[in-house]
Amino acid sequence: MLSWVRQALPTSSLAANAKPEAVWYSHNGHLLKWHYPIGLLYDMFTESSDAPTMPPADLPQLTGALPLPWPITVHLQSFPHDKLLPSPTSSTLQTLYMAQCKEAEFMRTGSTKKIMNLSKNDQSQLWQGFVEHTFEKYWRIGQPLVLGDDGFVPKHIPFRLYTRLGAVVQIPISLSELGETTTIQEAVTYIINPDRYLSGNAPVTGTSTPLDCRVLVHGILVDPATPLLWLYRHFSYPDTFLHAVLL
């Protein structure tokens, strides 16, 4: 990413001299955590009002409801160490990625055996496939993890629900308890019960009926009746978590 930024700002001596560890990004005043998937950040922070009134003519027209291109502010100084993890090297990025895959695997099966048993080469294929956007390479290793054997139902769905205020809730959702046909709406209602705190210290108002649930995954407003398991199998991110934003 930094090399793209450097290319984009060739005349700025500040950019040319920017130390990689000092660079950070924001959108509309929201800090962008580099260790979150960019699509998730987009879902979290984009409002339809962000749409440029006159999109540049040379950019492809996009039909989605949300605006593209996405304006991001690049900061070259005053790194907010208290709010962001220190900028990664490619090695720490890979470490974090594999650690997240293991956490998700631990939720799915209660152990990390399947990942620990991957050969060095297979682990590197998983990472390379992800970094190079080579789906087949990634999925050859990723598919047995996400989908498992025929009919495999994860012990718990690796599911994280984000709010636009930046709160994250990760709770174990057991389909053997809730039922394999549990919908995203039921899962969200399960997560946000009257006792639960979702944003800051404000208790969410309790309700006995499924919440009017508007959830974004990969920029798509998901039909509340979509089964969570189906959504997980088809819409999980490369770290094998399902990341969804509650609107």
């Binding site: 955590k33 260790h35 993890l85 220190p86 990664p88 720490t92 990025l93 470490t95 974090l96 650690a99 997240q100 293991k102 956490e103 695997e105 631990f106 152990s111 990390t112 994250v168 809730v169 990760q170 709770i171």
Partner: peptide, 24 residues
Amino acid sequence: AITMTQFVYISSAFSPAPDETIEN
């Protein structure tokens, strides 16, 4: 912060990201 997590694990299985909440 990331490399540091490699020395600290949950349930002998994985290292969470440093900003995951203890609650979760």
